[in-house]
Design a protein around this nucleic acid. Sequence first.
DNA 1: GTCTATATCTCGATAGAC
DNA 2: GTCTATCGAGATATAGAC
Lengths: 214, 214
Amino acid sequence: MTEPASYTETEERIFEAALHVFARKGKDGARMQEIADTAGINKAMLHYYFRSKDKLYEAVFAFVFRHYMDTFGAPIRDTATFEETLRTFIDGFIDAVKDNLDVVRLMVNENLSGGHVMGAQIKEAMMSMESMKPQRFVEKLTAAIASGEVRPVDPKQTLLSVISCCHYFLITLPTVCIMNPEATQDLDAYIEQRKAHIFDLVYCGLKPRADETA
Amino acid sequence: MTEPASYTETEERIFEAALHVFARKGKDGARMQEIADTAGINKAMLHYYFRSKDKLYEAVFAFVFRHYMDTFGAPIRDTATFEETLRTFIDGFIDAVKDNLDVVRLMVNENLSGGHVMGAQIKEAMMSMESMKPQRFVEKLTAAIASGEVRPVDPKQTLLSVISCCHYFLITLPTVCIMNPEATQDLDAYIEQRKAHIFDLVYCGLKPRADETA
DNA sequence: GTCTATATCTCGATAGAC
DNA sequence: GTCTATCGAGATATAGAC
């Protein structure tokens, strides 16, 4: 799978439209006509640029995956304490997810239907991304455990829990809005409230306790 | 939307097959032929029993939603401390999700594509389910805060975080298995490990601290 | 109730004019 | 590069024999 280093303006508009449709309907449920309409171009042009639906799906996934991994979350600074690291990570992560909801939807859809396209992407990405944000988070957490700032926990399990808390409520937003009417009225306020809750719950869950041995 | 109180054996076999396909492909991506093949019946029979794809989707969703809500999770006993309640809830919830993964996949798919069918179901279900498990969890947590067993937190936010941790890793299982090879080799062991981690993280996050005022 | 055959429509993909 | 027109496969849905 060779990928061009850059795409034309039209191709990126197609990616944007394809992402929107694939994210909601999945690969099989998406319609080329709907993607073309959303992109404001002719349906034949989709095939001119990307030959087939399969190729378009793979191309948009690869593009989005790289872009997503590059820009996700605030940078994790080396000078921060783990408390700062955690707060910054949750804050930046949720902001990034909120601004790229379709990317997360696309990836969830991939997992629901087997995750084969994504699997190939992940393996390819592993090679060229030593400084991946989640990996850095695990490193910082491991260091914090060693220094005693955080009690001994499984770092990968903890990362998974934090990501779960940050992703899940946005994935299931329609349901969350039904259960929490205030989220419908002012989503941004609800998101800030949720950020604060996640940090509070997780950081309290990680701090060493006076009444326990480390 | 009037629903029969019970279905025939054939109809329930169709539900099982439809759930399997709809959960993975979504409503638009699913194929009636594949559902018929999975159920081991003729494609024409699907239309004989459920007129159209739309009606089948609504019927299977309503059926599954009721069944899911009735049987989900271990009963929350009134005699338990909140520590026991939490452990029992996480344990029973994850077991139920593991045994009904397609149900969760179907609901996530619904949310990804707008959640309109599910929205109608939830509103209908709210009326007849005062003893819904999640609602009972919130009540127990609220009581535990009042009694001082748990520090003051937002109960609904906490419930959402617990559900996130229990659902998310199973929804994204293909990705989780790539990141954690040991989960591929022995999934049940990984699930037990995850149960223990979630309880540990959340319960430590909820326990009052000696160095803080309640 | 269950099947085969088929009508009708929609989708992905291409041909060919411009 | 962009469009219209269209082909052929495959989808939903139905008709009608058994």
